[in-house]
Design a protein around this nucleic acid. Sequence first.
DNA 1: GAGTCTAATGAGAATGAGTCCCATTAGCTG
DNA 2: CAGCTAATGGGACTCATTCTCATTAGACTC
Lengths: 148, 148
Amino acid sequence: MSSPGEHWISYTNDLLAGSGLRKSAARTHVIELLGAQHCALSAQEIEHHLGTDGHRVGRASIYRTLEMLVARGLIKRIDMGRAEASFEATMPDGHHHHHMVCSQCGNVAAFDDPQLEAAIDAVAERLSATVNDHDVLLRGICGTCAAS
Amino acid sequence: MSSPGEHWISYTNDLLAGSGLRKSAARTHVIELLGAQHCALSAQEIEHHLGTDGHRVGRASIYRTLEMLVARGLIKRIDMGRAEASFEATMPDGHHHHHMVCSQCGNVAAFDDPQLEAAIDAVAERLSATVNDHDVLLRGICGTCAAS
DNA sequence: GAGTCTAATGAGAATGAGTCCCATTAGCTG
DNA sequence: CAGCTAATGGGACTCATTCTCATTAGACTC
């Protein structure tokens, strides 16, 4: 049995293999790290994780890999109102979630909601434009912070 | 008859007058510029506009004013996936809109949709957290770009 | 396996938005 | 008007991200 993350890794590798890209260690490490995550990581966090895992990868290569993956729709760039952007694997079937950030502790929780997606699709339909992506971000106080 | 923007300006000034802040030229200019806008402006754009209007205001003061207005909920910081953040007056009655950014020309269109708001409220209800703000951002190709 | 071609890497410089510092200016109050 | 201090603004600084370029290392040929 393979986790969704492992599935994404092999999907991504297959897709890249068939597009004239060389298979480099740096790229492989970034992809494997992203695939192992259950939520978004920033470039900094990626650099740090790879460093402590003994797979140090240059910052430039990390950004280059992220850019390449975003361009191919394999990951999504997410802006959570912090200084740095975060990145998260996108499931090939289009399944995705959104985020709620606690303005007190900064913690991020993921959620998904079919009704919300339907409402967004309906808006997209109405506009004189082709909508091909959307972000939703909720901000507030998480349960833990509210309790303390 | 006063435009919604003028209404926001006087509302904002009244609110600030009653909170121990001195009335400074720099702050007044930023507030009046924001009130005159129909959509979001970035700090850079504010600096540039004020400069060409002959009301040059130091960058530090612009950021300070924006921070102060955000803290009081008088404007909202909006991240459109560009390098810089944008800022937009918030209507006292809570009425607001969201944005659609064209990934080709960068143009921004505003829209609002009660159903979408309802869907977000419903999600917020479900979560074990107090949601007090949200962003929605659509990305795609605008009508103009699609036509050309 | 060696040679060649060039994609990819990574160290560090450069960029640019946003923040900080601090000497100076200018609202306010008495 | 004098004094107090909030507020300003020039410019130094921070920090994420991008760029540059000399070096490294996949992949293909022989």
